[in-house]
């Protein structure tokens, strides 16, 4: 089928959809585009600290997550256990991909670095620090403006792809971004998440007082331990800031591992798969 015919058939399908929706519009449409559910209204009215103090009063501080960014506060506070185990799924998926490439690594970096022309390289050298700065600002401002750990990690994961395409895989390795280091930083991020989550429990065991797991503010009735909502006058939203930071590390270096592995030359992989060989089995 030629391209014009494909576009024509796509538009014809779209026309069928339009005819269907004409028929449905005559009968009226269901609950889309209406107001929000009461759970969403609850999140909206308790997450920002300014509103929460109006709604709940200052003595019920723990029922708010102290973050003006409602989505991030849901992800890390109200539904923190959900996000914790989804991070575990992410961890296992990357471990699965690394396991497929077990024992395969380029034995000797003998070929000279290839890549695009010097003009593109110069522009890229200028661009990569901008990318990293933007990603870091997304992560560290994630509790105030749209953004957070996931978004910043995905934004930073574009940088190794650009470096691999424009320079080469060897350039990235020579700058110290190896699979082992990326695995280390990613594990450090995951351990950091677990520590931030478990510190209230450890504190509770030591001191013998009540504490809540996965909550960033103290709860009414047990004003024992919480992460600070304000640090030096600046709003840091308790544990959300730390969780954003560690999730940023984990996500960005997780995807860096994947792209370091998928850019290995296919001949190297095949020879290592057939021969095995000690020079391939360095990890």
């Amino acid at each position: 089928m030629s391209g014009v015919r494909k576009v024509a058939s796509a538009v014809a399908l779209l026309a069928i959809v339009a005819a269907l929706s004409l028929g449905a519009a005559a009968g009226g449409m269901g609950p889309f585009f209406d107001g929000i559910r009461s759970l969403g209204a609850f999140y909206l009215s308790t997450a920002p600290p300014q509103i929460a103090e109006l709604v709940l009063g200052p003595s019920y501080r723990g029922l708010s997550s102290y973050s003006p960014e409602v989505v991030t506060s849901i992800v890390w506070d109200y539904r923190g256990l959900d996000t914790y185990f989804e991070t575990a799924v992410f961890f296992l998926a990357i471990i699965g991909a690394v396991a497929i490439y077990r024992g395969i690594e380029e034995p000797v970096l003998r070929r000279p670095a290839s890549g695009l022309s010097p003009i593109v390289r110069a522009v890229t050298k200028f661009l990569i620090p901008i990318n990293i700065a933007v990603a870091a600002s997304i992560a560290l401002h994630g509790h105030l403006t749209p953004g957070g750990g996931f978004q910043a990690g995905a934004a930073l994961a574009v940088a190794p792809i650009i470096v691999i395409v424009v320079f080469s895989r060897r350039y990235l390795l020579e700058r110290g971004v190896t699979k082992l280091k990326a695995l280390f930083f990613r594990s450090a991020g995951l351990i950091g998440i677990a520590l931030v989550v478990l510190i209230p429990v450890i504190w509770s065991v030591i001191s013998g007082e009540w504490a809540w797991v996965m909550q960033n503010q103290w709860k009414p009735g047990a004003e024992a331990f919480s992460y600070p909502a304000y640090l030096g006058g600046a709003l840091i939203s308790g544990s959300i800031w730390f969780l954003n930071l560690f999730e940023f590390l984990a996500v960005s270096f997780g995807f860096t591992i994947l792209f370091l592995l998928i850019s290995i030359d296919e001949d190297t992989v095949r020879s290592c798969m057939i021969r095995g060989g000690e020079e391939c089995d360095r990890y």
Binding site: S117, I119, V120, T124, F126
Partner: peptide, 16 residues
């Protein structure tokens, strides 16, 4: 400024 930087580099890579 970013457009001024990126557009010539992109079309340069395309031309090559």
């Amino acid at each position: 400024f970013l457009i001024l930087l990126l557009a010539p580099a992109g079309s340069h890579a395309l031309a090559r």
